[in-house]
Design a protein around this nucleic acid. Structure first.
Length: 853
RNA sequence: GCCGGAGUGGCGAAAUUGGUAUACGCACUAGACUCAAAAUCUAGCGAGGUCACACUCAUGUCGGUUCGAGUCCGACCUCCGGCACCA
C-alpha cells in the first residue's frame, strides 16, 4: 500500500489479480443458492459510453453484494454483434462487417476490463459467431415445425434511409427506432413469428412478474398488446351474397349506424365493385390512398384529414333491418380488426368527424344517465338532438331509439346484444389485439441466415438439423439497393434440395437481431455447448434471471420478444417456467449539458456533449467514476453528468484510503487480532463509533435489497465522517479503540467493495487480509441490533403538533417519566401555562406531543 | 385523447412508510495553511426575523382527515415518458 491513493496503479493490480485467480468465475453448485445478475448485452458500436458504464456499475454493485452474502453469482457479458451499423460500415467504407465488428468487440472488451466489471469472461458470447447463430437457426426451425414461423406476402414497415424492413415494435410512432427516418409501407414476402398466438399469455403471465417489474414497463406492454373485447357483426350487402364483417366494442350503439366504412385494401371492394356505376370513382380513391404510402403523422402533428367515397353498395343493419350506405375511407385500417367498421357518428369521435365532413346523418342512441333521478335525462326540447351535437358522446349510458333494447344500460346491452347476434348467426363475441405477428425477415447480410431452402419440386424445405449452421459467406457485394446482399452470392444461394437432391435456392433473408437477443441469457449458462442451445439442467439451475438491468428503450421490443421466446422454449420443453426475468430495473439516461444551452440531453456525439469513459477513468480512476455514477442519483432517474461530482467521489475515496493508511500498521498486525473486549472497556466515543458502524450496516443492507445505491453511498460517507471524528491516534489507542476502529474500517471497506472494488481490495489487503476479498472468506458484515441501539435519545416535544423543545431520555425511559419531563420543561411550560392539557401523545423513542386547549 | 410516473434548498437528492423536513454530496461564503494559487483543513449555508435567541413561514396549488401530513383522501395545476384514426 502506498501512502497516497494512486487509482491507476491499484486498478491495474487488481484487474490482473482477478483474472489470474478467476475471482468471478462460477459453476453450477447445487449446494449454493444461485443469483443471476444480468445486464442487457451491448451492441459493439466501437466505444463504451456512459450509459454502459452506468448499466454495468449497477449490475456489478449488486453482483458483489450478492457474492458477499454467500450467493453463487452468475454475472456474464456478451455482444449483440449482428446488425445494421456493421453493414453500413461495409457499404460506406468497404470494410468487412466481421472485421469491423470484431475490432469493436476487442476494443470494448478492453474498456470493460478497465472499468473492472466482475464478469465471468469465460462465458462471453457473440451473436455473429456460427456457434451462436446456429442455435438461432435451430430455434427458428423448431418454430417452423410448430407452425409458429410462416411466410406471407405482406405490407411491411420500410425504412427508406437504412433500406430495410422494420418490425412494428421497431417502427413505433411511424419512425425508424434506429435512425428516426419516417417509415413507409412496402409489399414483400416475409417470415413472421406468431407472437399473437401468445398474446393472451403475455398479458396473463404479467401477474407473475408484477412485483418485480416497473409499473410503466408492464403498462407499455399491456398497451402494446392492446387487448380489446368486442364482437364481430356481419352486415349483409344488399343484392349480393356478400357480407361485410365489422369489429366493434360498442354493439350497444348499433341502432346509430349510418354507414359501413371499409379500408381501402378491403377485399370486398375488389369483389363487388366490378358492377358498380361508381367503379371509377372508388378505384381512384383506392389508388390515391394506397399510393400515398401512408406516411404516419408525427405524434405532435395533427392527424390527416379523413377522406372517403360512397361505394354505392347498400348494407343491411342486422338489428334494425335498416339500409345503410357502404363507404371506403382512409381512416379505417386494414391491419386492425376486420378492416371494416360500423360508423356511429353520435358515439365515436372519428365517425362523427367523418359524418360531418360528408353530411351523413347523425342519430343519437345513447343518453347520459342522470344520477339524481336514476333515469334518463329527458329533455323534450332536445328530443332529437342529432343536429345539435358538437361532439360524439362516447361514454356508456342508457340506450334510446334502439327498438326493444331501448332503456337498457350499455354494459348490459353489450352482453345481451352480442349473445343475441351469436344466436341469430350474424355475429359473435370476440377479442382482438393490437399486437401483430413479429416480422423477422431482413434483407440484410449481417444477420443469421433464415435456414430455409426453396425447391422447385418440394417447395419450402427447412434445412436439416445436421446441416446447421447455415453459414454466412465471408463476403458479399454491398450495393445498398435493398435486396439482401446474400442474393448476389451464388455459392450461398445455389444449393441442393435436402429432400429430392435437385437444384434449389436458399432463402437470402437474415433474421432480425432481436431474435439473437431473445434467448442469449440462457446461452450464458452453457456457452460452449455444441449439441444444444444450452443444457436444460444447467439453465434450470441459473434461470430465470434474478435481476435484469437495462434501458427503458427496450420496454416493448426486446422485453416483449424475450417473454414470448421463453414461453415458446417452455412449450418445446427447454425450460419449465413462464417468465424469464423475475426482477427488472430500468436505469435512467445519462445526460450532459449541451454547451451554450440550459438543456440536459442524452450524451451523444452529434450534440457534442458526450463524455468518454476512458478519459474519466484516466483522470479519476474507474472506482471514482463508478462511485459517482451510483451516488449521484437513484438508478431509475436521469443522471446529470457533473465532473465536480466525480471530484467529490475521489475526495471521499482519498479520505477513506488515508484512514486505512493511518491505521494499517496497527490493524494489519496479526498479533493485534484479539477477541472482542468486554463492553465496559469501550469508551463513550468508541461505543458511539460502533453504534454508527452497526446502524450503517443495517441501513445499507436494506438499501441493497431495493437497489438504492445512492443512499448506500451516503451512509458510507456518514460512517467515514464519524470515523474521521474519532480522534484517537493509532499509537496511543487502547485495545478496545483498536477493536472499534477495526470493526468500522473493515465494514466500511467490505461495503465499499460493490462500488469501488479495486480500492476496496487494496484496503482489505492493507488491513491484513490475504488472497483478495472473495477468496478470504469475507462475508457481508452483520448488523448487531444491540450495538446499533442509541444510548441516549433526544426526544422532540411538540405542543399541538408544533416542535417546541427537546428532552433527553434513554430508549427505555418509561412513558410516565417522559410525560413528566416534557410537562416540566421550561420552554414547554411557557406554551402550556394557563391552558388545559387535554392529552399527551407519546410515541416510544420518537416523540411527545402535548395537546392543549 | 387514453395510460403510466413525478413535483422537496442554488443543484443532484434524503426522510426508518403518519412522528425532529432538507441526511449525503455538489456549488457557494468566510477563516486557517501558502509569497501566491491549487490541494487540504475548520466553520457557515431553506426564506423572513434577531446582535444572538425567540418566533413566523416553507415539501406544485386549494381543501379535507388526524394530536400530528412531504407521506393518507378529494379537486386542480405543471412537467416527463409511452401509445394514438385500434373501431
Amino acid at each position: 500500500m502506498d501512502e497516497k491513493y494512486f487509482p491507476e496503479k491499484i486498478e491495474e493490480k487488481w484487474q490482473e489479480r482477478w483474472a489470474e485467480t478467476g475471482a468471478f468465475e462460477v459453476e453450477r453448485d447445487d449446494e449454493r443458492e444461485p443469483f443471476y445478475c444480468l445486464e442487457m448485452l451491448p451492441y459493439p458500436s466501437g466505444f463504451l459510453h456512459m450509459g454502459h458504464v452506468r448499466n454495468y456499475s449497477i449490475g456489478d454493485a449488486l453482483s458483489w453484494y450478492k457474492r458477499l452474502r454467500g450467493f453463487n453469482v452468475l454475472h456474464p457479458i456478451g455482444w449483440d454483434s449482428f446488425g445494421q451499423p456493421a453493414e453500413q460500415a461495409a457499404i460506406k467504407r468497404g470494410i468487412n462487417p466481421r472485421d469491423w465488428t470484431e475490432d469493436n468487440i476487442n476494443h470494448m472488451r478492453g474498456q470493460l476490463k478497465r472499468v473492472g466489471v466482475s464478469y465471468d469472461w469465460r462465458r462471453e458470447i457473440a451473436a455473429h459467431t456460427p456457434e451462436y447463430y446456429k442455435w438461432d437457426q435451430w430455434l427458428f426451425l423448431k418454430m417452423y415445425e410448430r407452425g409458429l414461423a410462416y411466410r406471407r406476402m405482406s405490407q411491411v414497415n420500410w425504412c427508406p434511409k437504412e433500406e430495410t424492413v422494420l418490425s412494428n415494435e421497431q417502427s413505433s410512432g411511424g419512425v425508424c427506432w434506429r435512425c428516426g427516418a419516417s417509415v413507409v409501407k412496402k409489399d414483400i414476402e416475409q417470415w413472421f413469428l406468431r407472437i399473437t398466438d401468445y398474446a393472451e399469455q403475455l398479458l396473463e403471465d404479467m401477474k407473475e412478474i408484477e412485483a418485480g417489474w416497473p409499473e410503466r414497463v408492464l403498462t407499455m406492454q399491456r398497451n402494446w398488446i392492446g387487448r380489446s373485447r368486442g364482437a364481430y357483426i356481419d352486415f349483409a350487402i344488399k343484392d349480393t351474397q356478400a357480407k361485410a364483417r365489422v369489429f366493434t366494442t360498442r354493439i350497444d350503439t348499433i341502432y346509430g349506424v349510418n354507414a359501413i366504412v371499409l379500408a381501402a385494401e378491403h377485399p370486398l371492394l375488389e369483389e363487388l365493385m366490378e358492377e358498380s356505376p361508381l367503379k371509377d370513382q372508388v378505384r381512384n380513391f383506392i389508388k390515391r390512398t394506397r399510393h400515398e404510402q401512408r406516411r404516419y403523422p408525427n405524434a405532435i402533428e395533427d392527424s390527416e384529414e379523413k377522406e372517403g367515397v360512397n361505394t354505392g353498395l347498400i348494407a343491411i343493419n342486422p338489428f334494425s333491418g335498416e339500409f345503410i350506405p357502404v363507404w371506403v375511407a382512409n381512416y379505417v385500417l386494414m391491419e386492425y380488426g376486420t378492416g371494416a367498421v360500423m360508423s356511429v357518428p353520435a358515439h365515436d369521435e372519428r365517425d362523427f368527424e367523418f359524418a360531418q365532413k360528408y353530411s351523413l346523418p347523425i342519430r343519437r342512441v345513447i343518453e347520459r344517465i342522470s344520477h339524481e333521478q336514476e333515469s334518463i335525462e329527458h329533455d323534450p326540447t332536445r328530443a332529437d338532438q342529432s343536429a345539435t351535437m358538437e361532439h360524439a358522446f362516447t361514454d356508456y349510458g342508457i340506450l334510446v331509439n334502439s327498438g326493444d333494447w331501448s332503456g337498457k344500460l350499455s354494459e348490459d346491452a353489450i352482453a345481451e346484444m352480442s349473445r343475441y347476434a351469436q344466436e341469430k348467426g350474424f355475429g359473435e363475441e370476440t377479442v382482438t389485439y393490437r399486437l401483430r405477428d413479429w416480422g423477422v425477415s431482413r434483407q440484410r447480410f449481417w444477420g443469421a441466415p433464415v435456414p430455409i431452402i426453396y425447391c422447385g419440386k418440394c417447395g419450402v424445405v427447412p434445412v436439416p438439423e445436421k446441416d446447421l449452421p447455415v453459414r454466412l459467406p465471408d463476403r458479399a457485394e454491398f450495393t445498398g439497393t435493398g435486396e439482401s446482399p446474400l442474393a448476389g452470392v451464388a455459392e450461398f444461394v445455389n444449393t441442393t434440395c435436402p429432400q429430392c437432391g435437385g437444384a434449389a435456392r436458399r432463402e437470402t433473408d437474415t433474421m432480425d437481431t432481436f431474435v439473437d437477443s431473445s434467448w442469449y441469457f440462457f446461452r450464458y449458462c452453457d456457452p460452449h455447448n455444441s449439441d444444444a442451445p444450452f443444457d436444460k439442467e444447467k439453465a434450470a439451475y441459473w434461470t430465470p434471471v434474478s435481476q435484469y438491468i437495462g434501458g427503458i428503450d427496450h420496454a416493448v421490443m426486446h422485453l416483449l420478444y424475450t417473454r414470448f421466446w421463453t414461453k415458446f422454449m417452455r412449450d418445446i420443453g427447454l425450460v419449465s417456467f413462464n417468465e424469464p426475468v423475475r426482477r427488472l430495473m430500468t436505469q435512467g439516461m445519462v445526460t450532459n449539458q449541451v454547451e451554450g444551452t440550459n438543456e440536459w440531453k442524452r450524451m451523444s456525439k452529434s450534440l457534442g456533449n458526450g463524455v468518454d469513459p476512458d478519459d474519466m477513468i484516466a483522470a479519476y480512476g474507474a472506482d471514482a467514476v463508478r462511485l459517482f455514477v451510483l451516488f449521484a442519483a437513484p438508478p431509475e432517474n436521469e443522471l446529470r453528468w457533473a465532473e465536480t461530482g466525480i471530484e467529490g467521489a475521489v475526495r471521499f475515496l482519498r479520505r477513506v484510503y488515508g484512514m486505512v493508511w493511518r491505521w494499517h500498521e496497527r490493524l494489519s498486525d496479526a498479533l493485534q487480532k484479539q477477541s472482542e473486549p468486554g463492553a465496559e472497556e469501550f469508551s463513550t466515543e468508541a461505543r458511539a463509533l460502533r453504534r454508527k458502524t452497526h446502524q450503517t450496516i443495517a441501513r445499507i443492507t436494506e438499501d441493497f435489497e431495493e437497489l438504492h445505491f445512492n443512499t448506500s453511498v451516503a451512509a458510507l460517507m456518514e460512517l467515514s465522517n464519524t470515523l474521521g471524528d474519532f480522534r484517537v491516534e493509532p499509537q496511543t489507542a487502547s485495545a478496545a479503540d483498536v477493536y472499534a476502529v477495526r470493526e468500522a474500517l473493515e465494514s466500511l471497506v467490505l461495503m465499499l467493495a460493490p462500488f469501488t472494488p479495486h480500492v476496496a481490495e487494496e484496503m482489505w489487503e492493507a488491513l491484513g487480509h490475504e488472497g483478495g476479498i472473495l477468496n478470504s472468506n469475507a462475508r457481508w458484515p452483520q448488523a448487531d441490533e444491540e450495538l446499533a441501539r442509541k444510548e441516549e435519545l433526544e426526544i422532540p416535544v411538540q405542543v399541538n403538533g408544533k416542535l417546541r423543545s427537546r428532552i433527553r431520555a434513554t430508549p427505555d425511559t418509561p412513558e410516565d417519566e417522559l410525560r413528566a419531563t416534557a410537562l416540566a420543561d421550561e420552554k414547554i411550560q411557557s406554551f402550556t401555562n394557563g391552558r388545559e392539557v387535554v392529552k399527551v401523545i407519546i410515541v416510544p423513542q420518537r416523540l411527545v406531543n402535548i395537546v392543549v386547549r
